[in-house]
Write a protein that binds this DNA or RNA. Structure first.
Lengths: 156, 156
DNA sequence: ATTTGGGGTTCCTTCAAGGAACTCAGAGTG
DNA sequence: CACTCTGAGTTCCTTGAAGGAACCCCAAAT
């Protein structure tokens, strides 16, 4: 899919999609985040084709969000998040928050997040890094930045 | 692509991906967010195939994140975000933040966000809804919630 | 010497993305 | 009235990615 090259667009959303926009990639990251670090674990948990999983892991390693580490003398490997990858998980937490709010239905959220700092079940909240007040779709004005393309559209 | 049905998984991330996980969907939402509301505008801006754009818009309307509104006596329509859709934009802002930080390079971020509340250029920051402290990948413990599947894996 | 198990490849089928051309409905123009 | 213009899609064909099952390789362990 995704034959159009999102990486070349002058849009940070498109560039991020170039890294995790392919099907399954966010779910692979989620599994690794919660401690499922081996190929067969992830494959069995998600039910993803082994071929596709190989491709996704390779892509994520290439982009520096995962590292492949040997854990045995035998050729055995596990995948761990880099710092770049751990920060990607922010996106997953916000996605989970939206899904919990709008798609969970009667049953309620499939998982809960206990915040280490306060020990309580919490949800992620988006706030302005500058003033600390809530920051959502309607709270911002979008302006061209230094890396804006001059000619083409698709800045973002 | 995505022939596997993410909607049925007991995972809010997977369910969210069922809504916006297909290629182009997040970029379509972004365009509408920044005020490009008509079919031909979006098509020209993104360079997406008209066929695919038709499919994506239909899917997003079906899932209640967009509304299709007539703006003329002629058969002319524009697409606007619902509340559900506006909250989806939170995900886009976090994606943009990650892309700005890790992929923008020398040129700097393509766009900047001015926060209405404080008037300054800001970045989104993830905080715990309970205590207000930062909340990231390593700051939480993931626990089964009320909607957790009992038998299968893929909770999240 | 044979089995086991993790970590992949290979190969084939099906279905989605890209892309260009075509359609349709209603307004504006001469 | 005929003609064109424009927005908003459809149709059709080609290419290529996802699904899936089978196969392979290597290094213990038995």
């Amino acid at each position: 899919m995704q034959r159009t090259n999102f990486a070349e667009m002058a849009c940070s959303i498109a560039r991020t999609l170039d890294v995790i926009g392919e099907p399954w990639s966010p779910l692979v990251l989620r599994d690794i985040w919660v401690g499922m670090n081996r190929f067969d674990q992830i494959q069995a948990d998600l039910g993803i084709s082994r071929k596709v999983l190989t491709e996704r892991l390779g892509h994520l390693v290439e982009h520096g969000v995962l590292e492949k580490q040997a854990y045995d003398n035998r050729p055995r490997y596990e995948y761990v998040l880099t710092e770049k990858g751990r920060e990607l998980v922010d996106i997953l937490m916000v996605m989970a928050g939206w899904g919990d709010r709008w798609l969970a239905g009667e049953a309620g959220p499939p998982v809960l997040y206990r915040h280490h700092a306060c020990g309580e079940i919490g949800r992620v909240d988006l706030r302005c890094s500058h003033c600390g007040e809530p920051m959502h779709a309607d709270d911002v004005e979008v302006l061209p930045g230094p890396g804006a393309a001059t000619q083409s559209a698709s800045a973002g």
